[in-house]
Nucleic acid binder design. Structure first.
Lengths: 335, 335
DNA sequence: CTTTTTTGCGAAAACGATTGCACGAAATTC
DNA sequence: GAATTTCGTGCAATCGTTTTCGCAAAAAAG
C-alpha cells in the first residue's frame, strides 16, 4: 500500500540508488542497463508507485510550488487573476497554493509566513495594508516575491500593475469630452494604490478642465455596498452629479442598484463609467463603459518575472505599469 | 540565513530534541524547565526561525494540505466554490492546492495523481469525464475524496450536489405555470450529471403537462458560445420557442447576446429562465429568473465530510443532494 | 544513608527521496 | 599480456523534523 523506492529495491534486488535513477529519468546518465530499467519500471508500474514530492522537496530544497495571496477570491477581478496564475504555473510544472487574506493585513502577514514555512519557491501577492516590512524581508532573504495590482510606495519589491493614474485620467477626460462637468468619483479601499492613483487621475483631469469646484470624491471600500450607499447619497444630495466614475466592478454594481431604486435611467438621467473589464459588463442594460485592465497580461508578466528569479539568482527589481484601455458601452450621454 | 532546529541547538547548547519540544509546544509534556524554554524561544525569535513544514510532513506523514480540482476557475460558479473551500480549509489550519483541469479528463486524472504525489490529506473535486477508476482507487486506497457538483453514476464516492432533477422540474413547471408551451432547453456538457439531471427534470415536467411534442433539447457545453449559437439557431428556426431554459449562467449570457442581436425584448418577445445564482444576475436588464444552487452550503458540507474522514478513519460514503431554490427576476412573461 | 521517585534532558532511528564517491568486472588499447 | 577505459551498480551521507527510549542528577521517601 505504501510504495517507496526501497520497497521496489527490495523486490527487484537493486539498490535504492538505482531505482531512484531509473524513476527520475537519469538512467542514461548513469548507464543503467536496458534490462534493469525495464524491470524497475515494470515493478514500479505494477505497484503503482507514486514518488513522494515531500521527500523530494526536503532533499532537493525545492518544492515546485508557488504561493498566491489574494484579498478576496469572491471578487471576479481577483478570481480572474487566480485563474491565469494557476494555469500558468501549472504549465510550468508547478502547483499553486492559494490563500484568501480577506483584505486584512494581519491575515496577509500570517499567510506570507505560512508560505515561507511551506517552503514555496516564490510568491505572487496582492498585498493588504501599508506595512511592507515582512513581505519585503521575505523577498530579500528567502524567496522571490512579485506583487500584482497593488504595490507599496518606496519599496523595491517587483510589481506589475495597471497604470491606474492613466486610467483615472482616461475615464474622467472621456466624461468631460462628452460634456459632463459635475462628475463624482466613488473610490475603493483608501490605502490601496490603485484607488489612490485612479483618484489622482480623476483630480488631474478635473483640474485641467477647470472643474476644481466640482471635484467630489466619496467612498472607502471596493465593495457593492459602498457603491450602493455612496450613490444613494450622491443622488439625494442637493446638487447631484450628472456622471459618476466608479472605481471597480463591485462599486459599479452597487451604484446600478441605487440608480435603479431611484427609478433613474442610464444614460438618460445619469451617466456612469467604471473600472475593471468583466464579461458581465457587456450584458448589463445598458452595457457599461469602462476602463479595462489587462488582467491576463499582468498575471502572465508577474509569473514570468517570478520564474526568472526562481530560475536564476539575480535579485533584480521590475516595476511595471501596463496601460489600461477604454471599452465603450452605452452608459454615457453626451450633453 | 537558513535556520533549523540544529542551528538553534548549536547556539543554545541544548539538543535538537529539546528545541523541537519547546517549539512545537510540547515543552510542558516533557517538563522542560522555564529557563530553557525562555532561552530557546528567545533564540528562535531572534533568528526568526521558520519551521520546515516539508520536513514536518515527511516525518509525520501529514501535510495539512488538501487538493481542489476544478474544471474552470474562470467560471463564476466554480470560483464561488473555490472561494468557500479555500477559506474553509484555511480556517481549519490547512492550505489548499488548486488546480484547473480545463474540463479535460486526462488533465483531471493527471492532476489527481499529482495531488497524490504531493501527499495531500484529502481531495475536493469537480470531476471531468465519465471514467472514475483512478479517482475511486485513490479514494479507496490512499486518501479521502469528496466530489462537489458532479458525481459518477454507480460509484460509491461521496458527493454533495444540487438536486438538479428537482431544479429542472421547478424551472420548467414555472414556465408552464406562466402559460408557456414551446419551451426549449439549452444543455451543458452532455456527460455531466448536473446537465443530464436538469434535462431529465425538464423532460418530466413537459411530459406531465402533455407537451411532449414541444420538447426541444439543444447544446452541448457549459459555455457562453454554446448559449449564443444555440439561441441564434432557436430564434431563427421555423417554429421558435416562447421560452428558453438555459442550464447555466454562462449559457444564459450567450443567450442574452443572441436575443439582443435579434433585437428582441425580454420578456415581451421571449422569456428566459436560467440555472445558477450569481450577483450579476440581478443587475441584468431585466433581472433573470433563475434556479439558485446552495453553493456555500454545498462547499461547506463537502469540507465537513472530508475532514470527518481525515480525522477519523471510517471510510463511509455520504451522497447528498441539496435543494435548489427559485429566485424570481423579471425575465418571464405570463401568456 | 540507602532506595525510590521525580526532574530535565539527550541519542539515535526514522520519514523517502537524491547524490558524491567508489568499485569490481568486462571490454578495449597498446 | 598488462594497462587503461568503459560499464553497471551500490554505500552512505544528507535534507529538517518527530519520537521512542533511556539515563544521570536531584529530591523525596524510608
Amino acid at each position: 500500500m505504501k510504495e517507496t523506492l526501497s520497497s521496489i529495491a527490495a523486490r527487484t534486488g537493486f539498490s535504492v540508488t538505482t531505482i531512484s535513477r531509473v524513476l527520475s529519468g537519469n538512467a542514461e546518465k548513469h548507464r543503467i542497463s536496458k534490462e534493469t530499467i525495464e524491470k524497475v519500471l515494470k515493478d514500479a508500474r505494477e505497484h503503482n508507485y507514486s514518488p513522494s514530492l515531500v521527500a523530494q522537496s526536503l532533499r532537493t530544497n525545492k518544492t515546485n510550488t508557488i504561493g498566491l495571496l489574494l484579498p478576496s477570491i469572491a471578487n471576479p477581478y481577483f478570481a480572474d487573476v487566480a485563474s491565469v496564475v494557476i494555469s500558468e504555473v501549472h504549465r510550468r510544472g508547478f502547483t499553486a497554493i492559494v490563500i484568501d487574506t480577506m483584505e486584512d493585513e494581519k491575515n496577509f502577514n500570517d499567510s506570507a509566513s505560512l508560505l515561507l514555512s511551506r517552503r514555496v519557491d516564490g510568491i505572487i501577492a496582492v498585498p493588504c495594508g501599508t506595512d511592507c516590512t515582512l513581505i519585503e524581508s521575505i523577498n530579500d532573504n528567502y524567496l522571490p516575491v512579485v506583487l500584482i495590482d497593488r504595490y507599496y510606495d518606496n519599496s523595491h519589491l517587483s510589481f506589475v500593475t495597471t497604470n491606474n493614474h492613466k486610467g483615472g485620467l482616461m475615464a474622467t477626460r472621456h466624461l468631460i469630452g462628452m460634456g459632463h462637468k459635475k462628475i463624482a468619483c466613488i473610490q475603493g479601499t483608501i490605502t490601496s494604490n490603485p484607488s489612490k492613483e485612479r483618484v489622482r487621475g480623476y483630480r488631474e483631469a478635473m483640474t485641467e478642465a477647470g472643474f476644481d469646484e466640482h471635484i467630489r470624491i466619496v467612498g472607502n471600500e471596493f465593495s457593492i455596498q459602498n457603491g450602493y450607499l455612496e450613490t444613494k447619497l450622491l443622488l439625494e444630495s442637493a446638487n447631484p452629479p450628472t456622471a459618476i466614475f466608479t472605481l471597480s466592478n463591485t462599486i459599479t454594481l452597487g451604484a446600478l442598484k441605487a440608480i435603479r431604486e431611484a427609478a433613474l435611467k442610464i444614460p438618460e438621467d445619469i451617466s456612469i463609467i467604471s473600472f475593471d473589464n468583466y464579461t458581465y459588463m457587456d450584458f448589463l442594460e445598458p452595457p457599461v463603459t469602462r476602463i479595462g485592465q489587462p488582467t491576463e497580461d499582468m498575471a502572465k508578466l508577474a509569473i514570468k518575472i517570478l520564474f526568472d528569479r526562481i530560475e536564476s539568482v539575480p535579485n533584480s527589481t521590475s516595476q511595471l505599469k501596463l496601460s489600461p484601455s477604454l471599452i465603450a458601452g452605452e452608459s454615457i450621454k453626451g450633453i
